[in-house]
Design a protein around this nucleic acid. Structure first.
Length: 485
RNA sequence: GGCGACGUAGCCAAGUGGUAAGGCAGAGGUCUGCAAAACCUUUAUCGCGGGUUCGAUUCCCGCCGUCGCCUCCA
């Protein structure tokens, strides 16, 4: 079964064929580290996390590169947030950058987003960027003006092919001062001269300055993935000018195709004061940080929310939809927990062996969903479907053997855990865990005795007090089981 | 104005030329000392108007509406 990907370049769902069999080079535009990351970032990076996990689960060797933007597009319209923040805190700009970069990784770790193989920083690749700019000047795609360098968009016929834009149809730029330097208003900066107050500055053939907004991705993608590579990802909001500029720069400098498949993630919206969905963004200030969201929702629920819609769709964040994600996750998690808790006491025999057929069906449905342009919501539905049958099986009164239970757990662990990252691995029982389990079992036994004696006050007291400690009891026909947070 | 995406039940959402997955919430029921969990039943003429077709929610045209991008933003 082949993997289909909706390629934004060409606007078609096409079969995915990597440049080299078994190996995939993938680049995703990373965050600008000047604030704590918000749920919009979570949507994008969880989406690509699942893409990478699925590619790897499918047997591909993926080299996943995601940049950290710590210099470049920060200036221009007057305010440089990193510099402003640095002066407020009396800190070096790179301190600020380091602080937010660390928190970005922490947030992503908490969300279960596997780290990219390489996280190159723009500031650490200035020589590579300068070199690429020089090449573009030599080839007459770019020109120098007052210590800055601009890309001449009229020199490259392919400019606009990703976003279907024609420069003559766009609204004119509004930045008067800059326009004087440019040959055309649509030209974009490759290198900017540094004004005296600009602290982040490097020497270049054109004087002291700093790299433009888009060149970092071109230079770093080339360095780590080569001139041509398989997949380029990012948020749709960057399709123009950022992604478009990346493409022209790279293809003009390298005389080679840039990324072959473009995957862009729909934005995360949040209702404004009138209830109208509006893109969550730093500049509007309408964002919910990942840290704040984690105060209310567990990481798996945030992933469930993100995976509830196809990655290309815009999604609106609301308490109600989060609660929906929470409920859906709990249903899955309850089933997994029940399966795992039954494994310890299940007989070796295997009366439920016929269920493996059902499990195969679930794996197939899941695989077909993911191979169809990473259709995570459909893949989740396959697991929800399975969960109904699992619950029926486990509550049917028939004895389910340990082999079957382990096979069920295997499906959840591989697909819900390994691919989607919404189910945690089986808890490893350490020394303290074993002691805790023993103590809880002792209380359960006491409660069972109380229940037999119809001493409901006592049995309810034990249950309530355990609940206060985060331990939930469930009475089943074959005994009481527990789960802890 | 240009480019792009979208409009499916109370909410989220998948999908198809032959009357529509899944989840959440709601209602009723089963089980249970109670609870929890679970299961069963139940809720949609797929924005509006044309067209193509034996037949369209799915294809085409028009309209209405919403969002994104065109300026830093995942």
């Amino acid at each position: 079964m082949s993997l289909m990907i909706y390629n934004v370049l060409g606007r078609q769902k096409v079969e995915f064929v990597p440049l080299e069999p078994e190996r995939i080079g993938m680049y995703v535009c990373g965050p600008t580290v000047q604030e704590y990351s918000h749920l919009g970032h979570a949507k994008t990076y969880i989406s690509f996390d699942v893409v990478v996990r699925w590619l790897r689960a499918s047997g591909y060797d993926v080299l996943y590169v995601q940049n950290i933007t710590d210099v470049g597009h920060l200036l221009e319209s007057g305010e440089d947030r990193i510099l402003r923040k640095a002066s407020q805190l009396q800190a070096k700009p790179m301190q600020i950058v380091e602080h937010y970069a660390r928190h970005y990784f922490q947030d992503m770790d908490t969300l279960g987003v596997q780290r990219p193989d390489i996280s190159p920083r723009a500031s650490a690749h200035v020589p590579e960027q300068i070199k690429m700019i020089q090449t573009l000047i030599e080839k007459e795609y770019a020109y120098v003006a007052n210590g800055s360098v601009y890309f001449d968009v009229t020199s490259a016929p392919g400019y606009g092919k990703l976003s279907n834009r024609r420069i003559d149809q766009q609204e004119a730029g509004t930045r008067e001062a800059i326009r004087d330097e440019k040959h055309h208003a649509e030209d974009f900066a490759l290198w900017k001269r540094a004004e005296p107050e600009h602290i982040l500055r490097w020497d270049s053939p054109w004087g002291e300055g700093f790299p433009g907004w888009h060149i970092e991705c071109s230079a770093m993608a080339k360095k780590y993935l080569g001139a041509t590579f398989d997949i380029h990802g990012g948020g749709v909001d960057n399709i123009f000018p950022h992604n478009e500029s990346e493409i022209v720069q790279s293809e003009c400098a390298n005389d080679a195709d840039f990324a072959r498949y473009w995957m862009l993630v729909g934005s995360l919206n949040v209702p404004d004061q009138f209830g109208i969905p509006t893109k969550m963004s730093k500049s509007l200030g309408n964002y919910v940080t990942i840290k704040d969201a984690l105060e209310t929702y567990r990481p798996e629920v945030i992933r469930m929310f993100v995976l509830g819609a196809h990655y290309t769709s815009p999604v609106t964040y609301s308490e109600e939809s989060m609660r929906g994600a929470q409920g859906g996750w709990e249903r899955l998690n309850n089933a997994v927990w029940l399966v795992r808790s039954q494994i310890a006491s299940a007989p070796a025999g295997d009366e439920g062996a016929a269920f493996t057929e059902r499990l195969d069906k679930a794996r197939t449905a899941f695989t077909e969903a993911m191979n169809d342009d990473f259709n995570a919501p459909l893949a989740v539905a396959a697991l929800q479907d399975l969960t109904r049958d699992v619950n029926v099986l486990l509550n049917s009164g028939t004895t389910v053997g340990v082999e079957t239970l382990k096979a069920i757990d295997g499906v959840y662990s591989d697909l819900a855990g390994g691919v989607l990252g919404i189910i945690a691995p089986q808890q490893q029982a350490g020394a303290n865990a074993a002691r805790e389990a023993g103590l809880i079992q002792m209380l359960i036994d006491l409660r069972t005795a109380a229940r037999k004696a119809k001493n409901w006050a006592e049995s309810d007291r034990i249950r309530d007090e355990l609940a206060a400690l985060g331990i939930t009891l469930e009475d089943r026909p074959d005994g009481t089981v527990w789960k802890g947070e």
